[in-house]
């Protein structure tokens, strides 16, 4: 998980070229802002179990939707909560996840 990986450009789904599934990948991208808000809200309200569940779902779904880059970061966030890491550590893991979530795009790279 390098700094470059986190900061580089848009992330596209590997399903974007699948005629049967590309629309679903677009829907997943469209809903991403809501997922980010849900993650932020869970953290800011101190509801670590809700945050863990959302990280768990993101870990499973993002890769299934062709956004493989998100999976290890969501897994790291889930693990940090499960292992009761200090809040700063969890916050860092969350910020990494959100940074990546904000980079997902529908369609294919130009």
């Amino acid at each position: 998980m390098t700094h470059d990986t986190l900061q580089s450009e848009a992330i596209y789904s590997s399903l974007a070229t699948d005629p049967d599934l590309c629309e679903l990948a677009e829907m997943y991208v469209d809903e991403m802002p809501d997922k980010i808000v849900a993650l932020e809200t869970a953290f800011s309200s101190g509801d670590m179990e809700a945050l863990r569940q959302k990280a768990h779902q993101l870990k499973g779904a993002a890769g299934s939707y062709g956004f493989d880059q998100l999976t290890p970061y969501a897994a790291a966030l889930e693990a940090s909560i499960r292992n009761q890491q200090p809040p700063d550590h969890i916050c860092d893991a969350l910020n990494q996840v959100i940074t990546l979530c904000r980079r997902v795009r529908s369609g294919q790279p130009q």
Partner: peptide, 17 residues
């Protein structure tokens, strides 16, 4: 699956392919 995203995707995969 308690994640509706997974339900939507897998239903489509199974139905289509």
């Amino acid at each position: 699956d308690d994640d509706p995203n997974m339900i939507r995707l897998l239903t489509s995969v199974i139905s289509c392919t």
